[in-house]
Design a protein around this nucleic acid. Structure first.
Lengths: 92, 92
DNA sequence: ATAAAGCAGTTTATAATATAAACCAAATAT
DNA sequence: ATATTTGGTTTATATTATAAACTGCTTTAT
């Protein structure tokens, strides 16, 4: 009847992050923060969770002297996002 | 950019309940429990929340000698469900 | 040169949620 | 008569989301 909704994606902020990353070769922390209107703390935590799950890959480097965290969706993440959408459809 | 997802509907079980009620003049506790595969406790709590919010109307009566809890979606609930769907679309 | 303010985050604490476990009353079955 | 089932509710617990506080560096102002 109703398909399970992946709890990792069933979160407003994490879903927004994935939504951005799915259509954007990569995106950095500051950009994601702006686009999602989140606080740094919340964003940091949710990025870690997505990374733990292997849904995104996080790289830490520098842009000039400033730290820079870049994120990319992984194939697994892409699949999970598509599955989530399929599951959602069973509710509508 | 991304629309807010009504926290009351952004819950697997509550969404499933609403999904059923939206296309079903009314439905009782036992039926909802079966269809959503939930435990009574969880269902009871989530029905209360939807009722508190005015998204559904709960009526307690009897079917013969057995208690019977029937639920119906309200116009407000219907609107909220539609809004939730619209909001979701901004993520896909 | 030093202090104050900003930037880019992380860590920790708190509040809210979802879920499960335990419970209850009435009805039915043994 | 006493288990068991039915139809739930209440309470406890574990997970989550979110915010608040903090860190380490850099830039700007004094």
């Amino acid at each position: 009847m109703f398909k399970e909704l992946d709890p990792l994606l069933h979160s407003q902020l994490r879903l927004a992050i994935m939504s951005l990353l799915i259509s954007l070769a990569q995106a950095d922390f500051v950009f994601l923060k702006e686009k999602t209107n989140s606080t740094s703390g919340n964003l940091s935590v949710q990025l870690d969770k997505l990374s733990e799950a292997g849904y995104i890959k996080i790289e830490k480097g520098y842009k000039g002297k400033k730290p820079r965290t870049t994120c990319q969706i992984t194939p697994l993440g892409r699949k999970a996002f598509e599955n989530y959408l399929e599951a959602l459809k069973t509710y509508f």
